[in-house]
């Protein structure tokens, strides 16, 4: 099939179940990139991914300094796991990641979510995970469009040329 026969993507439904900086940003970059291309985007945050849209947590995301074999020091030396367990190290590494992203004009989580919704993207929270973590709608970022069951979310993922992405 040649490229000209391909039908362009119309909608992406993205599911984020993890709450580390890299998992959340992968989700946000994909969603924002979609709306910038005129592709509809719906994002479903579940389990630890809920941290990204919980007011008290969204500014405090971390990247794991233990059990993260891809983490390296500046210069490329592997980051020693034993160093990662020291108090403050994970916070320091996370702050450094965020400052590196800011240099590339990648915004903080709340601003990024605003950019996505400004472009018509929709943000949803998982009902089951909310119940599990004892979260209420008021605990969530104001721009969240709703709290859904997985069935309701799937109900929004129909239509031609729609893809579901699990980050």
């Amino acid at each position: 099939m040649s490229k000209t026969d391909e039908k362009p993507l119309k909608k992406v439904c993205i599911i984020c179940a993890k709450g580390t900086i890299e998992d959340v940003y992968a989700t946000l970059v994909l969603a924002n990139g979609a709306v910038m291309e005129g592709i509809e985007a719906r994002v479903f945050f579940t389990f630890f991914g809920l941290d990204a849209i919980t007011k008290s947590q969204m500014k405090k995301l971390h990247t794991a300094t233990v059990g993260n074999p891809a983490l390296r020091m500046p210069g490329g030396i592997p980051f020693p796991s034993l160093l990662g367990i020291l108090p403050g190290v994970e916070a320091g590494v996370s702050a450094m990641m965020k400052s590196q992203m800011e240099k590339l004009d990648i915004p903080p989580v709340d601003e990024f979510l605003e950019m996505i919704t400004a472009g018509g993207g929709e943000i949803y929270a998982c009902k089951l995970a909310m119940d599990m973590f004892k979260l209420k709608k008021e605990d969530l970022w104001e721009g969240v469009s709703g709290v859904l069951t997985v069935g309701e979310f799937y109900g929004m993922c129909g239509g031609e040329n729609t893809q579901i992405i699990f980050t």
């Binding site: 910038m36 005129g38 915004p107 601003e111 950019m115 472009g119």
Partner: peptide, 27 residues
């Protein structure tokens, strides 16, 4: 160039940018 930079330019916010150029604010 990023849409964030245009949004911070004082000319238009990001929502407004999408309204000016529907389907491709930066493109």
């Amino acid at each position: 160039l990023t849409i964030r930079r245009v949004g911070n330019s004082g000319i238009v916010d990001i929502k407004g940018l999408y309204q000016l150029f529907p389907g491709g604010p930066l493109k």
